[in-house]
């Protein structure tokens, strides 16, 4: 074996992992209380939600799309179902409706992108606004919706640990495994890669491109709903203000940072986990350093910008190859 192949190509994922490790070491040596087991566990717990959303986003981005409506799906149907349960609706029925709403939004996103041919970024931006605004208008007027008493067991489960690992962390790992299995071994998963890599070729080959694109958005929406329930269980309430936060960009950050190319067709679940690790370490370190929330935003956004620049350098586009209307 040649030296080159034994070292392997220096791709973005490895760079990110090396940076993460370096940052981990630096923080561990310089910061008091960083390299303790409770801190490490809380570190992973804090980013498990972002990471889990990143899995859904990765599915869509690999298929050459983007889904900005995930936060709306994460907060609104969950908050709505909690209110319904508090008002006396059976739990299964409330969740059933919530799933219907999420699937419906996923179908709408997919239909808009695949059939109406709206750029995914606009379609999902608008549907997110419509879902959030609409449900707020109809029912969910307050910002914080408490977890209904019948679901308290959920909170207990999510705040416990399994074999010393926080259950939120377990949740992320299990979810990662499922998405990995889906993308790696199912026919639909492979199709998503093919479509993201070259939609025209995929269509010519005879893949059901439009149906698969719809599937991507439905999966992302259902995943977001699931994550929303887990998040609400972890903090004992659903917080609709998250819609106005920068959470969406944190999700894109971990996905792009880890090396999932925005051009589609490139990336694995390990990329998302690597990006999640880097952001987790960064945020945790900054929190210990008592950096304000706003400066953290500034730093995260700058890191994302850097990741975008690196992405465009690794996957360059120029005037001859870029597609018209690709914004």
């Amino acid at each position: 074996m040649s030296v080159k192949s034994s070292i392997g190509r220096l791709d973005q994922e490895k760079v990110v992992l090396v940076i993460s490790a370096a940052m981990f070491l630096i923080f561990a040596m310089t910061l008091n209380g960083f390299a303790t087991i409770p801190n490490i566990l809380s570190l992973f717990q804090s980013v498990s939600i972002i990471g889990a959303l990143g899995l859904g986003m990765a599915i869509v981005i690999i298929g050459r799309g983007i889904d900005l409506s995930m936060i709306a799906v994460m907060v609104m149907p969950v908050a709505w179902s909690f209110m319904q349960i508090a008002d006396g609706m059976p739990v299964s029925m409330a969740f059933g409706f919530a799933i219907l709403i999420a699937v419906g939004l996923g179908l709408l996103n997919g239909w808009l992108v695949a059939f109406v041919e709206v750029p995914s970024i606009f379609a999902t931006l608008a549907t997110g606004m419509i879902l959030f605004g609409g449900m707020q208008y109809i029912k969910v007027q307050s910002d914080i919706i408490q977890l209904p008493p019948v679901l308290e067991w959920f909170n207990t489960v999510m705040t416990r640990t399994t074999l010393g690992v926080p259950n939120s962390m377990v949740f992320l790992l299990v979810l990662s495994a499922i998405v990995w299995l889906f993308l790696r071994f199912t026919r639909q998963g492979r199709f998503i890669y093919a479509i993201g890599d070259n939609p025209m070729a995929a269509r010519t080959t005879g893949l059901p491109v439009r149906q698969i694109v719809v599937l991507q958005y439905v999966l992302a929406a259902v995943l977001a709903l699931f994550v929303g329930n887990v998040l609400a269980a972890m903090v004992d309430s659903a917080n609709t203000r998250l819609f106005y936060s920068n959470m969406m960009y944190d999700v894109i950050l971990v996905v792009v940072l880890g090396g999932v190319g925005l051009g589609g067709g490139k990336g694995r679940i390990s990329n998302v986990l690597a990006g999640t690790a880097l952001i987790g370490i960064l945020v945790n370190g900054m929190t210990i350093l008592d950096v304000s929330y706003m400066v953290q935003n500034l730093v995260k956004a700058s890191v994302l910008l850097l990741a975008l620049v690196v992405d465009s350098l690794i996957n360059p586009r120029d005037e001859q190859t870029s597609q018209q209307g690709d914004i």
């Binding site: 041919e117 608008a126 419509i130 959030f132 007027q141």
Partner: peptide, 23 residues
Amino acid sequence: LASGGSTAILGIILLLAVVVDIR
């Protein structure tokens, strides 16, 4: 209009405008 209504309507107008533009 109650909170959320204008967000939803702005979203609907944005979506309609983009759809009409593209089609």
